[in-house]
Write a protein that binds this DNA or RNA. Structure first.
Lengths: 237, 237
DNA sequence: GAACGGTAATGGTTTAACCATTACAACAAA
DNA sequence: TTTGTTGTAATGGTTAAACCATTACCGTTC
């Protein structure tokens, strides 16, 4: 006859209202919400309750809050930051190790390279080759340029992910790297020889992509990630 | 000579203190934080500020708040819920389509099956075969049991992910399925013939796992996911 | 012994006041 | 006129105290 009265936490209702407004596109990224004092009147809640709702929306990555005159809650474009933060928590909690993350990365990069080989346009290949040229120069200059080399390596993998046209892979690239970079900074040491090996890897992958050989691109990418990881293994434990 | 004074939002300091306490293991899942009135005394902040911090921690999935006497903030075990929620937001935001998600799933399931083939123990295979027997029975009973069949299918894929021993794959399984299930419920219709096809797929994959044929397991799994998806394609648009 | 009801502890909400930061306009000095 | 300073007001951040809503527990009553 009756059903349980809805357990209302008023701030949750506020969160849902604002979130729906944003997701429905009625509030676009860059647009501002009314000031706290206005919003609390519209929503008929206290400022404290409204602020709890804003904290949740901020944590979800939907809004950012700026101070001062003309400040307030600005709608954010959705990014991968929240996913990365959640994964980072899992890692901190010791449930995910570097091995686990690397193994996952091997699979993803392999698949991404295969898809990129299948779908790359001539323009994509030209772009990849220009990145490759940068990598070659850094590799020649030796270990002082390790950091720059790693940056280009990362950029090449990101470009491959973008060639797939699948935002999930782009997201995964960011998520994996945001969470794996801390290990690189601590444990990765490459001398000129290792950088040259890695450059050769990258060149082979891009060559396979250009020849649209999907299987070869996949195998090369998998081997490349594994090799990259081996440089850390002896130091890690 | 001087550096910029730290921009303090007091509630963030509170968030960090509590989060660190949890991540360092000083507060284990199931344990309770002091009451708001105690905590605000310890931390020397107002209750409103403390509550904003608790909202953030709640949204991060680190605590859950219970009402009434003996209630309060309970430390949560870290789960995949937050990652799933973030991905769900991306999907709602139209940046990820079912095709994108399926394509990603194809890669993941292929890799998972290959790793499972490499690492499965006889006990794992026995477990998989018992699940397969359940699937066989539901498939024989026809489309009234579609939902049960899909559940077993999902369980088999989860088991394969668990056999890899890599928590990232287990996490990905949950994330992908939590976000893809809504489509299944809306668009997936399998008659007895389709269920029989799917059962054959699963049997082949498990057979390949038992024979430790990694390449075959990967290819079969990829084809299986694609077939599963094709059942929806005509209805989706 | 079981059901009811009171009590107290907890989180949820409101209100009002003040602090900190910022943009901008008004003004003064060069 | 240009430039630098200062005042003002709007915004979010914080505090405080009071009350409401939910719940566990205990004592009373039948």
């Amino acid at each position: 006859m009756f059903k349980a009265a809805k357990q209302t936490r008023i701030f949750q209702d506020v969160v849902e209202q604002i979130q729906e407004t944003i997701l429905e596109g009625k509030l676009m990224p860059g647009e501002m919400l009314p000031s706290e004092r206005e919003l609390k009147e519209v929503l008929q809640v206290s400022r404290g309750t409204l602020r709890e709702a804003l904290r949740v929306l901020e944590q979800k990555g939907l809004i950012e809050i700026k101070l001062g005159v003309g400040g307030g809650a600005v709608v954010q474009d959705i990014s991968y930051d929240q996913i990365n933060e959640s994964l980072a928590l899992l890692i901190r909690y010791q449930k995910v190790s570097l091995q686990h993350l690397t193994e996952f990365r091997v699979g993803v990069e392999g698949r991404v390279s295969a898809l990129a080989a299948e779908r790359s346009t001539p323009a994509d290949v030209i772009h990849l080759k220009s990145l490759l040229e940068q990598a070659r120069q850094f590799a020649e200059k030796g270990s002082d340029f390790q950091k720059a080399f790693v940056e280009v390596d990362k950029h090449i993998h990101l470009s491959l992910a973008e060639i797939t046209g699948n935002p999930v892979y782009i997201s995964m690239h960011h998520t994996v790297h945001d969470n794996i970079d801390q290990y690189y900074e601590t444990f990765l040491v490459m001398k000129q020889r290792e950088m040259a090996e890695n450059f050769t890897d990258l060149a082979s992958i891009i060559d396979a992509v250009e020849r649209k050989n999907t299987d070869e691109a996949r195998q090369l990418a998998e081997a490349h990630v594994l090799r990259f990881n081996h440089y850390m293994e002896s130091r890690e434990m």
